[in-house]
Amino acid sequence: MQINADLTQPAIVDSAALDWVASPIAGVERRMLERDGGEIARATSLVRYAPHSAFSAHRHDAGEEFLVLDGVFSDETGDFPRGYYVRNPPGSSHTPASEPGATILVKLRQMPPAETHSLRIDTTKPTLWHSNTDGSSTALLFTAPWEQVDLLRLPAHYTGPAETYTNGAEFFIIEGSLIINDTQHPAATWLRYPAGSTITLTTRRDTLLYRKTGHLMAEAG
């Protein structure tokens, strides 16, 4: 299966307009944003766990990254409520579940072998956030030679500078809405821009974004 699999092309998906698709496990559904492969695939998805659901134990040979958007996600390492950011490196395994239900933004099979450490960050902690001179604030979640991940809060009526992303950029609108290069996108929109893209971010209301940069040049090559 291929969905937005060409990383040299831009991709924009309003995930709220997609149907939930059943996974092989009852009570776990997905909205597929990008995918290259079958059931084992390089993928970016929204995954929804029904209350009292669990997924079978499995291994992540090329890693897993996710942000909890709603509810509480759990595995052997703990319980992760809304706002938690988690990275499980290549070779890790777990048995995920959710007692109250949960929705996560998850990226699978997108880590290099050089990534070897697990990461759990509560992004709601005020000490994680740093104010910028333009009125925005950022929370750095992960940085390495192959990519950087952060959350970005933009105030209402914000217009940033035009920024060229040499090795590409990816966004997910968690709250609010975003105007990129004169086109408005609602909450729950996922956007991917290839290497060399120039992007201007504008808002009409307070907006919270997931942002990943620097990762598309190597993957696209």
Rank of each mutant, 00 (worst) to 15 (best):
V13D: 00
S56W: 10
T189D: 04
L151A: 05
T123A: 03
R48V: 09
G37A: 02
D75P: 11
A162C: 10
T123Y: 06
G101N: 05
W129T: 13
T213G: 01
M217Q: 11
R48P: 12
P194K: 03
N132C: 08
Q184K: 09
D14S: 07
L128Y: 15
S118T: 15
H130W: 03
N181C: 08
N4V: 08
I199S: 03
S93P: 11
S74A: 05
N132L: 11
L67K: 11
A41T: 07
M32N: 13
R192K: 01
F80H: 11
L67Q: 04
G63W: 01
L7S: 10
Y49P: 03
T77L: 06
T95R: 06
G91F: 01
Y210C: 01
R35V: 13
T207I: 09
D150T: 12
G160A: 08
T77S: 05
D134K: 07
H130L: 06
W129A: 02
T189C: 00
T164Q: 05
E219L: 11
T189Y: 03
F171S: 08
S93L: 08
L69N: 02
L33F: 08
W146H: 15
R30W: 03
L7M: 14
T44R: 13
D61E: 13
A11F: 06
Y193G: 00
R87V: 14
L191G: 02
E115T: 12
I3L: 04
A162M: 14
T103S: 06
G71A: 09
S23A: 10
H117C: 05
I40V: 15
T189L: 03
V21W: 00
L208Y: 07
P186N: 13
Y49N: 00
R42Y: 04
R153L: 00
G27M: 01
